[in-house]
Each structure stands twice: as C-alpha cells, then as structure tokens.
C-alpha cells in the first residue's frame, strides 16, 4: 500500500513537470504570451495603485480613467486567455487520457489509509471503485487530486509561471480565470 502511495506522489510530480513543460513549449515561451503577460501585470499594478489612491473619490475624471484602464485590462486578459486556451485544450485531452490510464491501473486498489473519516460528499471520491465499507480506505483519484493540488501549484510558483497576485486579483474580478490546478 505504501509503495502505491509513494508511486502516486511520484506520478503527480512527473505529470506536473510534464504539464508545465508542455505549457512552456506551447504557451509560455511564445513572444505573444510574454508580451501580453508583461502588459497585463503592468496594467494590473497600475490600476491597483490608482484605485488605492482615488478609491473613494467621486472625481468623474478619475473614475473615467479607471474605467478606461479596466476596459483595456479586460481586453488584454481576454487575449491572454485565448493564447492559453488552444494549448490548454490539447494538454487537457492528453492528461484526461493519462488519468484514465492510471485510473484503470489502480482500479479497485486501496492505495492509502486515511487518518480521518472523510465527510459524506468526499467519500464518493475517496472511496471510488473500492469495495468494502471502511471509508478510511483511500482510492487513487483522491490521493492524486491532493498531490496535484499541492505539487503542481508549488512547481508553477517555483518556476515563475504562476500569475502575479495583482494580475489574478484584477483578472479574477474582470475575467474569471480557472484555478491553476485544473488547467
């Protein structure tokens, strides 16, 4: 059982690097993406500073300026998402196939023992395709999702591919981007 759980951690480290590597080849290294990213980050920081400085002022001129900048940022964010989208779809398909392969390998196998009883709406995931009613038995998919959540995000941050806080804050408000771990 322990070797299975360690193998799953190893698999998620590999898939995280593979995912980031593929995204780098298809997206991050392209000039268009780099230009847009720099632009979005610059605009987000500028907008944040302007909002902080004139947040409560009722000055129409400032409000108009902020609105204009928000509009520009919105457009850039949309372009950035479009650049990402195509390759994200390709990577998404590849990973779905990979996931179903691993799923069939670990099908019906208890890969770990949970030190807690999962709440009812998580049991469907943590006990997926497992027999018996010991809900502390953990299925492949639950451990894999947890590993991906922690490892992928940290690798993204370590490699500097995670979006800056200012950009995701502004982007989140203007153009809802999907969470990094599900890309």
């Amino acid at each position: 059982m322990w070797s299975d759980s360690l193998l799953i951690v190893f698999i998620s480290i590999c898939t995280a690097f593979l995912g980031e590597g593929l995204t780098w080849i298809l997206v991050y290294r392209t000039e268009k993406y780099q230009k847009l990213k720099v632009e979005v980050e610059r605009q987000s920081k500028k907008l944040e500073k302007r909002k902080e400085a004139h947040g409560d002022s009722l000055d129409k001129q400032h409000k108009k300026k902020i609105e204009r900048e928000e509009e520009r940022l919105k457009n850039n964010n949309r372009d950035l998402s479009l650049v990402k989208m195509k390759s994200m779809f390709a990577i998404g398909f590849a990973f779905t196939a990979l996931l179903s392969m691993f799923n069939s390998i670990f099908d019906g196998r208890v890969v770990a023992k949970l030190p807690f009883y999962p709440i009812s709406w998580i049991q469907g995931l943590s006990h997926r395709n497992l027999t018996g009613d010991d809900y502390t038995d953990c299925s492949f998919i639950f451990l894999y999702i947890l590993c991906t959540m922690s490892i992928r995000q940290n690798i993204q941050k370590l490699l500097g591919f995670a979006p800056s806080r200012a950009a995701s804050k502004q982007g989140g408000a203007l153009f809802a981007a999907p969470p990094a771990q599900f890309k």
Partner: peptide
C-alpha cells in the same frame, strides 16, 4: 489551500506507511 493539500498528502502517506496495516 495548497498548504492544506500538502499537509493532507504528507499526513496520509506517513500514516499509511507507519500505521496503515493496523486495524485502527
């Protein structure tokens, strides 16, 4: 959230390795 996921993974793996075979 990332820290929570990292915590769960470490907790589950260490627990499985040391106490997984016991009927707890």
């Amino acid at each position: 959230m990332t820290s929570f996921a990292g915590f769960l993974v470490t907790w589950i793996i260490v627990f499985t390795g040391l106490h997984g075979s016991n009927n707890n």
